[in-house]
Design a binder for these strands. Structure first.
Lengths: 190, 190
DNA sequence: AAAAAGTTGTGATTTGCATCACACAATTTC
DNA sequence: GAAATTGTGTGATGCAAATCACAACTTTTT
């Protein structure tokens, strides 16, 4: 799908922008393509951008001291991703973002976002709404992690994003659910 | 501490408002006092407000089908709390908020917040910044839950909020960490 | 001040999941 | 298309934490 059109429709769900306003906003973005397996952000990087997924699928993840991976987010077309802690505090990335498939992104720099938010009240409103819903989703996931068993959460995830079932290795789904791949596998026979 | 002053200082950390602007904003708030043990929000309620804690301590929590409690947040003076999912989507509360000690709150209705955000760009900016940092904190907690053992997370919590150690029952701290109170107790001798 | 309610200390038992280990299948790479 | 890498199925073993059970201590209520 056309990147501009995808973003436009996505923004329009929250705020009404005139064509001119949206064009001005869209001019802040640059397009980038990555191959499967490529890193978009590596731990320790200085972060300058947040990313809007146009096509493909990316993962946001953390690797601990024992090389164990934890997946924070799978981002599909229409999703945003970055290391927001690093982006907003100007610190170095503590997480990684990598491509699960070939991926096309729109990149928005922190500076351009803040300028756009300052210039257009509606755009600030859009980003506030987005952050609110990310926060709510994150709280919901935390609660589900504490409250529900692995099987339930696996089914919850696949129901929410059926594409994931075939698109990403089970290993990564286990790393999202916070269990070993063996445990995830054994859910089938239980 | 004076509620108005506390809120003013809190807002000033993020945005510069003139005294008149702040006064206008503050007029949207109402003050409420609660006794220890009282409920501010009960599951199933229609939610109209978010709350800024002036004094005391409150807990945001969920009770599952087996009557097990999960604490999502301890809110101390200077913190905000509500069921944001219910507040923004107009749905019924799925969580509870209750008072751990006698508590004084400032209440801001959803409507008043949205009006203030519309009227004053700076206020919208304040709420965006707030939501961003809540989102970052929530992600960080999720990651810590998956990555670190209970003992580490307990110490992390007490380091961040030393007041909690004496102010809230260990039972509730266990419910925050997602373990049984027995497990929390046994950390001392291990 | 007595009774009731809530909180914490401590043992015994069970269980879900991690870890280790290895074979086989699928997918990349050259 | 052969070799290398990555992913998946499956068993055996061990441990951390849940659950149950109950006594002791604290705080609240009347």
């Amino acid at each position: 799908m056309d990147p501009k059109q995808l973003l436009k429709e996505h923004v329009a769900k929250t705020v009404k922008l005139s064509d001119d306003e949206f064009d001005g906003f869209f001019d802040c973005f640059t397009t980038k393509s990555y191959k499967k397996g490529a890193y978009i952000i590596t731990e320790g990087d200085r972060i300058d951008c947040e990313y809007f997924v146009v096509s493909g699928c990316i993962k946001t993840f953390y690797i601990n001291d024992n090389q164990k991976m934890f997946v924070l987010q799978f981002a599909m077309p229409g999703c945003w991703a970055s290391d927001y802690s690093a982006l907003y505090n100007g610190t170095r990335a503590t997480i990684n973002i990598g491509c699960i498939t070939d991926t096309e992104l729109l990149c928005l720099s922190n500076k351009d976002r803040e300028n756009a938010c300052k210039k257009f009240h509606q755009i600030e409103h859009y980003f506030r709404a987005r952050m609110t819903s990310e926060y709510v989703a994150s709280q919901k996931r935390l609660l589900s992690t504490m409250n529900n068993d692995v099987k339930y959460r696996y089914e919850e995830l696949i129901t929410l994003f059926p594409e994931l079932f075939n698109m990403v290795p089970k290993r990564l789904i286990a790393a999202y659910l916070g269990v070993s791949r063996e445990t995830l596998y054994r859910l089938n026979n239980s």
